[in-house]
Design a protein around this nucleic acid. Structure first.
Length: 546
DNA sequence: CATGCCGGGAG
DNA sequence: CTCCCGGCATG
């Protein structure tokens, strides 16, 4: 039974699948959180890392899930070993190893799985090496000798980037669960997300991954993958099974996770990514990367939170957080380039839903100062986030995320028009300038949006309902500019007629509908003669101006 | 579906 | 210009 079990576990860990599936990815983090780098790190080194990376792309990490998962793992492990955390880790390692031997021989180039199994400590050691302090709890437990052995083995990893990466990849691919993570948070947004994703897909998958452009080459697959993934993810969230995942990926490769992300996932993948990505199933990549990332781009922002004990540092970029961990916690001053990826264990991604935020803002409080809030103060937010559910988190984060703005903004424009849905936030963030002035939003944003973004200009209107006039004027100006830039819209008969060009046309923001009673309403059709001429001519009413 | 308006066209 | 209307956009 144990063997079987171990296998399962290993698989689980590797794939992320398992009962916890989506959680798996999180679990890693959780482990870190709970144990602070203790067990999780060690055992999963390979696996976990993978998870992290993978999850990173889309993850909304819910502490709860993580904890749960973690606990589960622990309990199992502990039972086996009979020892505390340590044993757990080891177990994990063991499991993992087993899994390796069973499924993934390929992974460990350096060491045969069998060896690894026993050397479980090894993994740990590796971890330890990477994470000095945190693990200490565990480490001490782990006997010195083990540690030694492990170290020996371990050391390779850093160097071995080659070898490891493979493992990671494998794992990562399997881990994909990320979507799941979202689910919890995304719940309400499902539809939106789906729509967004679809839109984005249709629009331009390539955009997302500049680096991955080559990979992107497989649009069809990607699109299909997305859909599937989405459905899967959602469903999975409910059911919790990522079985498909495993089935799909016969290959051990890891999907390169997060690159697509706004922040720039560069940090995540590291060397491994590059290798994997090329080799991997492109389809897989898309499935994972795109779907998740997409979403994010649209409505989700990802923040990176340091999981180090008592450290709740939140940064907008993975690289940043990694640096932070490396320097502050790991005490590595060395060049960032050499990162072995250990940092991954120590931070988690937090996903913020922009859409919800925007919506909430618009509906609830037009002004919603939060939106404008000064960028840099994440920390406080972070704590909250953790506790609260996704929804709240998202909002809370929203602000922080916006900070990343500059980059974000760019992405949005370049990448997806559909993102316009998020416009309010974006402009704000981008402009960042003054938190308070919503005016800025209404005024400036419109023009900007017009340039880059097609359809959904309508949002703008909502912003400043107050004076239609002014807005109109401004808009007109915007229009003028636009028109100059773009080929003037005079498509013969109906400007509007051409949907395709429609987004060019938006140039002419239609006046928001007047709220005031119009001649028609006042006098009715019977007394049309009483109407103002404009009304009679179907022009903007001049008598009852708003 | 009813409105409100824009973009055009005819005179 | 003045009158009108087709048709889109919005509520």
């Amino acid at each position: 039974m144990t063997s079987r079990r171990l296998l399962d576990k290993s698989l689980t860990g590797i794939r992320l699948g398992g009962a916890t599936s989506s959680q798996a990815g999180n679990s890693t983090y959780a482990g870190n959180n709970a144990g602070h780098g203790e067990s999780v790190t060690a055992m999963d080194c390979g696996v976990i890392l993978t998870c992290t990376k993978l999850s990173s792309p889309g993850r909304v990490i819910s502490p709860m899930l993580d904890n749960i998962v973690w606990n589960e793992c622990i309990s199992k492990d502990s039972v086996v070993n009979g020892v505390g955390l340590k044993s757990e880790r080891e177990k994990h390692l063991d499991l993992k190893k087993v899994g390796c031997s069973g499924d993934m021989d390929e992974r460990d180039p350096a060491g045969p799985c069998g060896v690894l199994k026993k050397s479980s400590p090894t993994h740990r050691l590796i971890l330890n090496g990477q994470k000095p302090d945190d693990q200490m709890h565990l480490e001490p437990r782990t006997s010195g000798r083990e540690g030694e052995e492990a170290r020996t083995c371990l050391q390779p990893p850093p160097l071995c980037s080659d070898g490891w990466p493979e493992e990671r990849h494998t794992h990562s691919s399997s881990h994909i669960p990320v979507p799941r993570n979202r689910n919890p948070s995304g719940h309400a947004d499902k539809e939106v997300m789906a729509a967004t994703v679809l839109t984005s897909l249709s629009t331009s998958p390539l955009v997302l991954n500049p680096s991955a452009a080559a990979q992107a080459a497989v649009p069809e697959l990607s699109s299909r993958g997305w859909k599937e993934s989405l459905s899967a993810s959602y469903s999975s969230s409910t059911s919790g099974n990522w079985s498909w995942d495993a089935s799909d990926q016969s290959v051990p490769s890891t999907p390169s996770p997060p690159l697509s992300n706004d922040t720039g996932g560069k940090g995540f993948l590291l060397s491994a990514q590059g290798d994997d990505a090329s080799e991997e199933h492109e389809s897989a990549h898309f499935m994972f990367e795109d779907p998740i990332p997409r979403k994010r781009k649209n409505s989700m922002k990802v923040m990176f939170k340091c999981l180090w004990k008592n450290c709740e540092k939140v940064l907008s970029t993975s690289s940043g957080i990694q640096r932070h961990i490396r320097t502050v916690h790991l005490g590595r001053n060395n060049d960032s380039d050499c990162s072995d990826g250990e940092e991954d264990f120590y931070y988690t991604e937090i996903e913020v839903n922009m859409d919800t935020l925007s919506e909430g803002l618009s509906s609830l409080t037009p002004t919603s100062p939060t939106t404008a809030g000064p960028p840099p103060i994440f920390l406080p937010m972070t704590s909250d986030l953790r506790r609260c559910d996704s929804a709240h988190h998202q909002q809370a984060f929203h602000t922080p995320l916006s900070q990343s703005a500059p980059s974000t903004l760019c992405h949005i424009r370049t990448d997806h028009a559909y993102q316009a849905s998020v416009p309010v936030n974006i402009p704000t963030s981008s402009e960042t300038v003054e938190s308070e002035n919503r005016i800025s939003v209404s005024w400036q944003s419109p023009p900007i949006i017009f340039k880059g973004l097609p359809g959904p200009m309508s949002h703008i209107r909502s912003v400043s309902i107050g004076e239609k006039r002014q807005l109109a004027t401004h808009t007109t100006l915007g229009k003028a500019h636009v028109s100059t830039n773009t080929p003037t819209p005079k498509p013969a008969s109906g400007t509007r007629s051409h949907p395709a060009h429609s987004w060019f046309l938006p140039t002419h923001p239609r006046k928001p509908r007047g709220e005031a009673k119009k001649c028609r309403k006042v006098y009715g059709m019977e007394k049309r003669d009483l109407w103002c001429t404009a009304c009679r001519w179907k022009k903007a009413c001049q008598r009852f101006v708003d």
